[in-house]
């Protein structure tokens, strides 16, 4: 694409552009959620969409996640392609039955008759001192369920391209944004583009250690890599973009080259994407590894409120750097 077509926009603008473009393209696509219309979105992701598409396609719902998520699933069974905004994925837990027990299983239990082309999206992970009930990283809990796809973008460019793919996908897609990334600016072309699922991006090339991450944590890993470079450690950072499907081939290729692997995942460690990646690498790269796969997760405690505690709770630059050094026997 030409340089002239590039401009810098925020993450939230990228998500909105993707939704708006797809709504212009396909009448079956609509947006619903709490405060998405008149309020312009609790986090301004849907700003201006009510004006363009009107109240029949940009729909304010009451605070009843279970009800409106289920309603959207029913609409998807009929052939609509709803986008459902959860103000926070933490609030989606009251809708666990529709989003986990209905959407991903409908195709299978109906013997292929009824699919569920729907996108659930919202903020995931710690927002900033919101305490334990509002700070969920749901990827560990939810990615356990077959039949769904899970997208966790780390930057505006990916957010837009992946959202467009999510909306056109015929399966239920869980799209995890981050409150801490919504104001992030990045280059996004004017021209249309889609990013396929299941293709990791090499966020930084390196030769000593493969860091596997996704979402906001990719940006923390990039900062750490710059610091580690000064110590003579060259990190290769893989931004997975999607957890389901998981681009196992890219992980294996990279780890076979570096011989070391660190996974950075902000969900809890027990039964998580991080543990899955570790299992995969241990199985596929057993003879290539110089050390076991090191994993950096949120601490195995409910998210604390106090600023210092929360900073230590989350995967942070210090813990990631320590893990890389340890994995390379440099500590």
């Amino acid at each position: 694409m030409s340089i002239a077509s590039m401009r810098e926009i925020e993450f939230r603008d990228a998500v909105r552009e993707a939704m708006s473009e797809e709504m212009r393209r396909d009448m079956r696509v609509m947006l619903m959620g709490e405060e998405v219309a008149q309020y312009n979105g609790a986090y301004k992701v849907s700003r201006g969409m009510l004006d363009e598409f009107g109240p029949r396609r940009v729909i304010d719902t009451p605070i009843s996640e279970s009800g409106f998520a289920g309603m959207a699933i029913g609409a998807a069974m009929m052939g609509l392609r709803p986008i459902v905004e959860f103000m926070s994925w933490s609030f989606s837990l009251v809708a666990a039955d529709p989003i986990l027990n209905n959407a991903p299983k409908m195709l299978y239990m109906s013997g292929g008759q009824f699919g569920c082309p729907i996108v659930f999206r919202g903020n995931n992970g710690a927002g900033g001192q919101l305490g334990s009930t509002h700070s969920w990283s749901i990827e560990g809990l939810f990615s356990n369920v077959p039949g769904m796809k899970m997208v966790i973008p780390s930057n505006p460019y990916d957010a837009k391209g992946l959202m467009k793919t999510a909306i056109r996908d015929d399966d239920p897609v869980f799209f995890l944004e981050s409150e801490r990334l919504l104001s992030m600016r990045g280059e996004v072309p004017e021209e249309e583009y889609l990013i396929p699922f299941g293709q990791a991006r090499i966020a930084r090339a390196g030769k000593d250690c493969t860091i596997v991450s996704f979402g906001r944590m990719v940006n923390v890993c990039l900062e750490v890599a710059i610091e580690l470079e000064k110590e003579g450690i060259s990190c290769e950072i893989l931004d997975m973009r999607t957890i389901r499907p998981l681009d196992a081939a890219s992980i294996i290729r990279s780890v076979k080259r570096t011989g070391a692997c660190v996974v950075v995942d902000q969900s809890w460690s027990f039964g998580s994407p991080g543990s899955e990646v570790a299992a995969l690498v241990h199985r596929e790269c057993f003879d290539d590894l110089d050390n076991y796969v090191h994993r950096v997760h949120s601490a195995d405690v409910p998210a604390p409120y106090a600023y210092g505690l929360e900073q230590e709770y989350l995967p942070n630059a210090r813990r990631i750097a320590e893990a890389v050094r340890s994995c390379l026997y440099r500590s």
Binding site: M30, R56, S66, G67, F68, A69, G70, M71, A72, I73, G74, A75, A76, M77, M78, G79, L80, D97, P98, N101, N102, M106, M109, S110, F114
Partner: peptide, 23 residues
């Protein structure tokens, strides 16, 4: 449109079917 095993879960779905026909 089913046949649903979780008590009550089909009512949001049914409301969604109606939402779709109206849409």
């Amino acid at each position: 449109f089913g046949g649903h095993g979780i008590v009550g879960a089909q009512i949001p779905l049914g409301v969604g079917l109606a939402f779709a026909t109206k849409y």
